[in-house]
Amino acid sequence: MSGPGSRPGRDDSPDRLYTLTGGRSRAGTDSPFDLVTLVVAESAPVPGMQSEHAAILRMTERPTAVVEIAAELRLPVGITKILLADLLATGRVSARHPRHQAAVPDLELLEQVLVGLRNL
């Protein structure tokens, strides 16, 4: 029978997760992070920094989605959001949502379609 520590390369025991987050279970109500939020490092890791924070800064040299960070760290997304909130609060990362390119309809084309429909 397999237990929580039996998965290779994964250590998500409650004690470890509690330690990583300082006992917090949520990133906060004003957290800008969801699964697709892009995170970018604003600074390099510094000596003495928590290893997960340093790993996040290294992997977000280019925009990286929260879900990708969680997968790479092999941590639950909720825990990853807490770690990201810590980095955001200290200005070490920035966060933004992917741009949604709203398609602006071509008004001339719409008028031609309307004329065509009226002619039917």
Rank of each mutant, 00 (worst) to 15 (best):
L57S: 13
D34W: 02
P8V: 07
L114C: 08
R16H: 14
M49L: 06
V93A: 02
A70I: 02
E42I: 02
S6Q: 05
P105M: 12
S25C: 10
D30I: 01
G91N: 13
L107E: 15
G9E: 11
T90V: 10
V40Q: 07
D15N: 05
S94F: 05
I56G: 01
M59Q: 08
G116K: 12
L88S: 05
V36Q: 10
S25D: 09
S6C: 10
S31I: 08
D11F: 08
S51M: 07
R99A: 09
H100Q: 07
T29R: 13
R96G: 12
D11K: 10
G9R: 14
R96T: 13
D12V: 06
V93L: 03
D12K: 00
R92W: 01
A44Q: 15
L107F: 00
S94I: 07
E42H: 11
P45N: 00
V113C: 04
M1K: 01
L17R: 07
S2H: 11
A85I: 08
V104Q: 15
R24H: 13
G22V: 09
R118A: 03
T29E: 15
V113D: 06
A71I: 06
R62D: 03
E72R: 00
E111M: 10
D12F: 02
E61V: 03
S31W: 11
R99W: 08
Y18K: 07
F33S: 01
N119A: 15
G48E: 00
R74V: 00
V93K: 00
R16M: 03
T29F: 08
I56W: 04
P76F: 03
R26P: 01
G23K: 15
M59N: 06
P105F: 09
T90N: 02
L114S: 13
G48S: 05
P63T: 10
V46E: 09
T29M: 12
L114G: 04
A102Q: 12
D86E: 13
Q112E: 13
A44Y: 13
L38C: 06
A85F: 05
G9P: 07
A85W: 05
V93Y: 01
Q101Y: 14
H97A: 09
A27F: 04
T80A: 14
Q112N: 12
A44I: 08
E52G: 04
P98L: 03
E42P: 01
P45R: 00
M1D: 00
M49A: 06
L57R: 14
S13Q: 15
P76S: 04
S94P: 07
V115P: 01
V67A: 14
P47Q: 05
H100N: 06
A65N: 03
T64K: 11
P63E: 09
R74Q: 10
E111L: 14
R26T: 12
A55F: 05
V104A: 05
L88T: 04
F33L: 08
E111K: 15
S94M: 08
A71E: 09
E111I: 06
D30R: 07
L38E: 11
G5M: 13
V36L: 11
G23V: 11
V77N: 03
